[in-house]
């Protein structure tokens, strides 16, 4: 919907890389305009009163109870305005929400993301387009999708709550152990974006990040998949890790440690 209104408030920080990112940006801009209008008016009134009615010698304050109807309207009229804009907003909000979360459009492919302390495992369908078959491709912290294809995702968790968050797609969804949560996205820009865990999941929460690579076409995607199967692919994720600054110092005392992931993590850093 951002063809109607685009202030570029969010896109100046992070690209809008999915089909519904534009809707969410539009909603942000719309709320900014409406709310900004009320905010500026209210603040201007407040400051005007502060300056106009500051204490002066010999000027006594007025006696206004605000209980009479003729006085009450002064708070009631802006109040009706607020209600009108609220109703207006709710309409747009629900339309976008229904598009993003309540409908599940037909898909070209499905991916599965499994969160665990503290990494993401991804399952790609392979050639047959179905999960849980022989030609599935498993990756760790590295997700590959194709531009302009609609994807369904299945979110699972092995231990605690995680959150599958891709800011460039304007997408966040909790993963809950014991449940499979479905949703969809459709990437519209090729490139590599951050994929984060956005729900606190323990000591290594800060380290639980992955990369999502949007391939411009199927050829590039297939090449990558073959390379992963052959074990020759150096993931984008690994390259970025080497560029990044020193990892955090970790102190996991052995006596406290029951979690295999914690031991692994403590040894690897």
């Amino acid at each position: 919907m951002n063809e109607y209104l685009d202030l570029g408030l969010i896109t100046s920080f992070v690209p809008a890389a999915s089909s519904f990112a534009g809707d969410i940006d539009f909603l942000f801009d719309l709320i900014t305009i409406i709310v900004g209008f009320w905010f500026v008016i209210t603040l201007a009134t407040l400051f005007y009163f502060m300056i106009r009615f500051r204490r002066r010698e010999g000027v006594k304050a007025l006696y206004i109870s605000g209980e009479k109807h003729s006085e009450k309207v002064w708070t009631h009229y802006p109040h009706y305005g607020v209600i009108a804009f609220d109703v207006f907003l709710i309409g747009f909000v629900i339309v976008v929400w229904v598009n993003v979360k309540q409908t599940l459009p037909a898909n070209e492919d499905t991916i599965r993301a499994i969160g665990q302390q503290w990494s993401w495992s991804f399952v790609h369908t392979g050639a047959d387009g179905k999960l849980d078959t022989e030609d599935d491709v498993n990756t760790v912290n590295d997700l590959h999708v194709i531009k302009d294809n609609t994807y369904h995702f299945e979110l699972q968790s092995r231990d605690v709550l995680h959150n599958f968050a891709i800011p460039a797609f304007r997408l966040r969804q909790d993963t809950i152990p014991g449940r499979t949560i479905r949703g969809w996205f459709k990437p519209t820009i090729s490139g590599t974006f951050d994929l984060q865990c956005a729900e606190i999941c323990g000591r290594g929460h800060s380290m639980m990040f992955a990369a999502i690579t949007v391939h411009p076409d199927r050829k590039s995607y297939d090449e990558t998949m073959d390379a992963i199967r052959a074990g020759t692919y150096e993931s984008h994720f690994e390259k970025k890790r080497q560029l990044g600054p020193v990892p955090l110092p970790f102190t996991v005392s052995k006596s406290e440690t029951d979690s295999p992931y914690a031991i692994e993590l403590a040894q690897s850093f």
């Binding site: 409908t103 599940l104 479905r182 949703g183």
Partner: peptide, 16 residues
């Protein structure tokens, strides 16, 4: 939007 049955079938989270 809150209760229509065709949307119920497309509900992304309800299946969980």
């Amino acid at each position: 939007f809150t209760g229509f049955p065709s949307i119920l079938k497309a509900c992304a989270v309800c299946f969980s």
